[in-house]
């Protein structure tokens, strides 16, 4: 359902050319929970941005649900992003001036969903993350873990096929991190495909598959129910 072939991303400035991704080949199947790890600057976030269509790539082919992303306009990418992808950010990225209900509502409004349906989804998702009673609170009134749960509710409300999580526990203490991770695992069990970028090897181990990115290429570790298999760098996964 997600397929990247020979994807490259080059950042150019006047003096420097940086190859953030090189010959990046990657496939994701429906219902997978994949952890993407790697050292800082390895290209994890660039990969996530391209997977989420937050930025364009320089070369290669990227297909999402059979749609060639490279052929889409800016509006087309925004629409596809809104319909198929839910984002969970390290910094939560809740809008501080909006209450929880309004925050979860944001992607639904961009999709043009009617008010009654929006209400139903928002209430269900806030309940799912255990914050149904706090819909009228603003983010500043919540702990970090609660804010991240709101962000998860916001990602879920659009009923996306993919959840892209960028260090979702990076700003949380271990207890909160465990709770968020359990939430993501439950969401995955319910059928959502999750790609999670993380520095935390413990969390990565809880995913079904672990992709390690080094120097813009995949150095792949697979984790299947405790089994460990290493593949050569740059191999198709």
């Amino acid at each position: 359902m997600l397929s990247m072939t020979n994807i490259s991303k080059v950042y150019r400035s006047e003096m420097v050319q940086t190859n953030a991704l090189r010959d990046f080949n990657f496939q994701v199947n429906e219902g997978e929970f994949i952890a993407v790890t790697g050292p800082s600057g390895s290209g994890k976030t660039t990969f996530l941005n391209i997977a989420g269509m937050l930025e364009t790539y320089t070369g290669g082919t990227y297909q999402l649900d059979g749609i060639d992303v490279g052929r889409l306009s800016d509006n087309g990418r925004a629409e596809l992003r809104n319909q198929k992808i839910g984002f969970i950010f390290q910094g939560f990225n809740l809008i501080p001036d909006l209450n929880l209900y309004e925050n979860v509502e944001v992607p639904l409004r961009y999709r043009g969903i009617k008010a009654a349906e929006r209400k139903r989804r928002i209430e269900r998702c806030l309940e799912q993350v255990g914050l149904g009673a706090r819909a009228k609170h603003v983010p500043a009134q919540l702990s970090g873990g609660q804010q991240q749960r709101v962000a998860i509710a916001r990602a879920l409300a659009g009923e996306p096929r993919f959840l892209l999580a960028d260090e979702p526990t990076g700003n949380l203490d271990s207890l909160m991190a465990r709770q968020v991770m359990e939430l993501l695992e439950n969401i995955n069990k319910d059928g959502a495909t999750i790609i999670m970028v993380t520095h935390d090897p413990e969390l990565a181990r809880r995913a079904q598959r672990n992709i390690q990115v080094v120097d813009g290429q995949i150095c792949d570790f697979k984790l299947y129910q405790g089994g460990l298999e290493k593949q050569r760098a740059g191999a198709e996964v």
Binding site: L54, E79, N82, Q83, N93, I95, V106, P107
Partner: peptide
């Protein structure tokens, strides 16, 4: 700035 980026990430078009 971050809020606008987040809105764009969540599906806002430029016109939105």
């Amino acid at each position: 700035t971050r809020q606008i980026g987040t809105r764009r990430a969540l599906g806002a078009k430029k016109s939105d």
